[in-house]
């Protein structure tokens, strides 16, 4: 065994442990802020795994999208509504926990089954390394064009929804009740910052 392959193995074990322990922590830790930070750690671990697989572009995209955007937004939301409140004890929590654990365990067993029954071709196709970026681009704009576009439409919908939620002056009345929406909440100053004040007089 060469040094490089053993380094790779050590890295793999470490990253795998990070991902598993982190994921368990995300689910089991009660403090939601810790969970969110651990989620970031898990994403980083996954990015590391991609790196080990010679997929540097995917790894960087993983970091950019999941750590830099998704996780930061989660943290942002948690911290903006950082209320320390006593939650009402949920009835039959124990049973719910056991049920969800059963579902998760079942899923895990299914995954293992897939893992064991699939015939993995080892070694897999040769890594293309630096060419991966171009190859991904080609795939995105040829055979994966439809899913790609669908995903962008989905994002567009989410964005429009967010805008509608944020700018309530679009709605003059509540959608459900038909009442007039309280206009005081709307931010009054929407003036662009680059207005030249000199020609106003």
């Amino acid at each position: 065994m060469t040094i490089s392959s053993s380094t790779e193995q050590i890295c793999f074990i470490l990253l795998g442990l990070t991902v598993i322990v982190g994921a368990l922590g995300v689910v089991l830790i009660n403090n939601i802020v810790y969970s969110a930070f651990l989620l970031g750690g898990v994403f980083m671990g996954v990015a590391g795994l991609y790196l080990l697989l010679n997929a540097s572009f995917v790894a960087a995209a993983q970091v950019l999208v999941y750590v830099g955007a998704v996780n930061v937004l989660i943290l942002f939301a948690i911290m903006l509504v950082n209320k320390r409140e006593e939650l009402k004890p949920i009835k039959a929590l124990q049973i719910r926990k056991i049920l969800s654990a059963g579902v998760c365990g079942g899923l895990l067993i299914l995954l293992f089954r897939v893992d064991l029954t699939t015939k993995w071709s080892t070694p897999g196709p040769a890594a293309i390394g630096e060419k991966a970026t171009e190859r991904i681009g080609e795939h995105l704009f040829s055979d994966y064009l439809l899913p790609f576009e669908l995903a962008s439409v989905l994002l567009l919908m989410a964005m429009i929804g967010a805008i509608v939620l944020a700018r309530r002056d679009v709605l003059t009345s509540d959608v459900v009740t038909g009442d007039v929406v309280n206009q005081n909440l709307i931010e009054k100053s929407n003036e662009p910052i680059l207005i030249d004040q000199s020609n106003k007089q």
Binding site: F37, S56, A60, L64, G68, V72, E130, A132, T133
Partner: peptide, 24 residues
């Protein structure tokens, strides 16, 4: 590395997590 400048953009997006962490 092939992803060059993209690495920088990705890495610089980790920073806010540290800032949020220390702020919190």
């Amino acid at each position: 590395i092939g992803i060059g400048i993209f690495l920088w953009i990705a890495l610089s997006s980790i920073q806010p997590i540290g800032l949020l962490m220390s702020g919190y």
